[in-house]
């Protein structure tokens, strides 16, 4: 078991299975939000189902669309369980705050290297802590 600290985040505590890549992330550019899979061919997670996973990627990219889309994904049950990024942008934080989706960024280490796909992780945004179980 290892503990990774980050900045205080948004949302409540969740436990789930990690889906990890070192790529960046946009809800508009990278996802088929109806099927719940990564649809961008050049993305390392192309074809992967992200629904209910603790999604771990490098940086938020792209524009305003994510702010509405994250909440829509949560309501339609096509959302990840939580989102962890090395580097958030305002839109992703605004989207997570609107969706009440657990969200953290700025960790003590590169979060995409510290956690592997398939790991079980406990995400505690208010404590600023991720535990790999």
């Amino acid at each position: 078991m290892s503990v990774i600290t980050g900045h205080k985040g948004i949302g409540g505590q969740v436990r789930g299975i990690a889906l990890v890549a070192s790529d960046n992330f946009s809800t508009r550019y990278d996802l088929d939000r109806e099927r719940g899979i990564f649809s961008r061919r050049s993305h390392k997670l192309f074809g992967e189902n992200y629904v209910g996973r603790v999604l771990i990627l490098n940086a938020a990219k792209g524009g305003v669309a994510s702010a509405w889309m994250l909440r829509e994904m949560v309501i339609n049950e096509k959302a990840p369980l939580a989102l962890l990024l090395n580097d958030a942008n305002p839109v992703m934080a605004q989207g997570a705050a609107f969706a009440e989706l657990p969200f953290m960024h700025r960790f003590e280490t590169d979060i995409t290297q510290a956690i592997q796909t398939g790991d079980t992780v406990l995400v505690d945004p208010q404590a600023g802590r991720v535990t790999v179980e």
């Binding site: 524009g63 305003v64 702010a67 909440r71 305002p90 605004q94």
Partner: peptide, 8 residues
């Protein structure tokens, strides 16, 4: 200014 997306 920052990005102030829809709800923001």
């Amino acid at each position: 200014c920052n990005f102030e997306a829809g709800p923001s």
